[in-house]
Amino acid sequence: MPIFEVQVIIENKAGMNDPEGETILNDLVLKGSYSTVKKIRSAKMLKFQISATTKESAEKTIRKLCDDLRIYNPMVSKVTLSVKSA
């Protein structure tokens, strides 16, 4: 059975506060050398390797895993999955 790598990117939805991104931006502004940077949004990425018959099956399984384990809060988080052959 083929092996797929599934990347799960979890970030705050648009309009939600992003304290980590704001802290990084404030640090850059204080240093003064990156004043052209106007906004930073942070995210976390999880990488899974999974045996599956198809890319679609791999994505469906990892999405269910993330939902079942409550890896993210659907009220505030946006989740993006990408799948490629390992």
Rank of each mutant, 00 (worst) to 15 (best):
F4M: 08
K84D: 12
I50W: 00
M16G: 01
D67S: 14
R41W: 05
V79Y: 07
Q49N: 11
D68H: 04
N12H: 12
I71N: 05
I40Q: 01
L81C: 00
S82P: 05
P74C: 09
I10Q: 09
L65P: 03
I71K: 06
L28S: 10
T36D: 14
F4C: 08
A14E: 15
E11Y: 02
M1G: 12
N26R: 13
K39R: 14
K64C: 02
G32F: 07
F4R: 06
N17Q: 12
G32M: 07
K38T: 14
K39G: 12
L25Y: 03
S35Q: 13
S57E: 13
E22L: 11
T61H: 04
D18A: 04
T80N: 12
S77G: 09
I10F: 06
L81D: 07
P19Q: 05
A58L: 01
A52V: 04
I10V: 15
F4G: 10
I9Q: 09
A52D: 03
S33G: 03
K13F: 10
P74S: 10
K84W: 02
D27P: 00
G15N: 08
M75T: 12
E56M: 05
C66R: 03
Q7A: 11
K44Y: 09
T80E: 15
S85M: 08
A58G: 04
Q49T: 09
P19H: 04
K39I: 06
T61R: 10
V83Q: 08
T54I: 04
K55G: 09
L30R: 15
S85C: 01
E59I: 09
S57Q: 09
K39N: 15
E5C: 05
E56P: 02
A14K: 15
L30D: 14
I62C: 01
V29D: 08
L28Y: 07
S57K: 07
V79S: 08
K44Q: 06
A58Y: 01
L81S: 03
N12K: 13
V29P: 01
F48C: 00
V79L: 09
Y72E: 11
K31E: 12
I40P: 01
E59M: 12
V6S: 07
K31V: 04
I24S: 04
K13R: 14
K39S: 15
Q49Y: 03
Y34F: 15
T23R: 04
S51H: 03
K39Q: 14
S57N: 06
M1D: 11
K47A: 00
V37H: 05
M1W: 00
P74W: 06
D27H: 12
N26P: 01
K13E: 08
T80V: 15
Y34S: 15
K78S: 15
I9Y: 00
K78L: 14
I9S: 07
N73G: 11
Y72I: 09
D18P: 05
D67K: 14
N17E: 13
V83F: 04
P19I: 04
E11W: 02
N73S: 13
V83L: 04
M16S: 08
Q49F: 03
K78Q: 15
A14I: 14
T23Y: 00
T61S: 09
E22H: 00
P74R: 09
V37S: 06
T36L: 05
C66W: 05
T54S: 14
A52R: 02
L28K: 05
K47C: 00
E56K: 11
N12L: 09
T61G: 00
G32R: 06
A52K: 02
V79M: 06
M1K: 07
N17W: 02
